[in-house]
């Protein structure tokens, strides 16, 4: 029983970190209709910004965190301006964007290999990992609770932004029909920049927690494949879908690790993906293709 509760908390914690990454993926997909494979790069940029601020600038975690989120946000905007906008302006074929994003992922990864080297780096112990008892039923680490809580805060903030602000409304409208959003007087390029900033910003939150969990290295971004799977399971383009899909995936991974074997984790993850694609290709909350004109 204690193991079960513990693994559920761990699963929710891991899933919530996936969710931070998956919503960015999904947000970009909902507007531009391509899977941005450079998203993992944003996460790594966030991780190194945080690492650098802590180690080199001697900043505290709050400052380092803020720098990481803002830095990754702007890096995402820059990526879009340099690599995607020129393509968007020439063609509507989103396949080119997909290919460009794969290229940008390699570029970002290699920039870090060259600048900081490929070795694994541990972040200073800025996030407590002390054991915490959960109502006397189970023990888990403070880190898991903090990452869960942070994800809830950031996802809640995203939800508020999308539902309560003028730009949030514009993003929801653009997710349905970008062209017509432009016709309403929305500066579409600015809107896309905002979306990429948000995606990079949230990816960096995930990046910091993943760096603490698994250490930081230039290929850490590869883990976004899990968030991508989660976004597909939830339904690409749907934000609630991305969150639910992520939580399902996190739980599945941790329960597998706790009760079967840690080595089976990825097998379970990709089996879930295959089953979803077979049973409901549009994912749990996906739009049916005909709905999108």
């Amino acid at each position: 029983m204690a193991t079960l509760i513990q693994q559920i908390i761990n699963g929710l914690s891991l899933g919530s970190v996936y969710a931070l990454i998956a919503v960015g993926y999904s947000l970009v997909y909902s507007i531009l209709l391509f899977s941005n494979f450079a998203h993992g790069g944003f996460l790594v940029i966030g991780g190194y910004f945080c690492y650098g601020s802590l180690r080199l600038l001697g900043a505290g975690i709050w400052t380092a965190g803020a720098l990481a989120l803002i830095g990754a946000g702007f890096a995402a905007v820059l990526t879009e301006r340099l690599a995607y906008r020129p393509i968007r302006e020439r063609t509507n074929v989103t396949l080119y964007l997909l290919i460009a994003s794969m290229g940008m992922n390699i570029v970002i990864e290699n920039i870090f290999v060259i600048i900081v080297g490929g070795r694994f780096r541990a972040l200073p112990p800025v996030i407590p990992t002390t054991p915490v008892s959960v109502m006397g039923l189970a023990t888990t680490s403070a880190f898991d609770l903090i990452s869960l809580l942070s994800a809830v805060v950031f996802l809640g903030a995203l939800q508020l932004f999308l539902s309560k602000t003028r730009w949030g409304l514009a993003i929801r409208a653009a997710a349905y029909d970008l062209r017509t959003a432009g016709l309403m007087g929305v500066n579409v390029n600015l809107l896309i920049s905002i979306v990429f900033f948000v995606a990079g910003f949230l990816a960096a939150v995930g990046g910091i927690f993943l760096s603490v969990r698994y250490t930081l290295y230039p290929q850490l971004g590869a883990i976004t494949i899990k968030a991508f799977v989660a976004a597909v399971i939830g339904g690409l383009g749907s934000l609630p879908g991305a969150v639910i899909g992520s939580l399902i995936l996190g739980l599945a991974e941790m329960l597998t690790a706790g009760f079967i074997s840690s080595q089976m984790r990825d097998l379970v993850v990709f089996s879930l993906l295959v089953i979803t694609l077979l049973v409901k290709p549009t994912g749990l909350f996906g739009k049916s293709v005909s709905e999108k004109v």
């Binding site: 003028r166 514009a170 929801r172 409208a173 349905y176 029909d177 016709l183 309403m184």
Partner: peptide, 22 residues
């Protein structure tokens, strides 16, 4: 626009708010 192009998943009020965006 031709074909109306209302934002189907948004409410009537939200559509009108979009019109006031600028």
């Amino acid at each position: 626009p031709e074909g109306r192009k209302v934002f189907a998943p948004l409410t009537v009020l939200e559509n009108l708010r979009m019109g006031a965006f600028p």
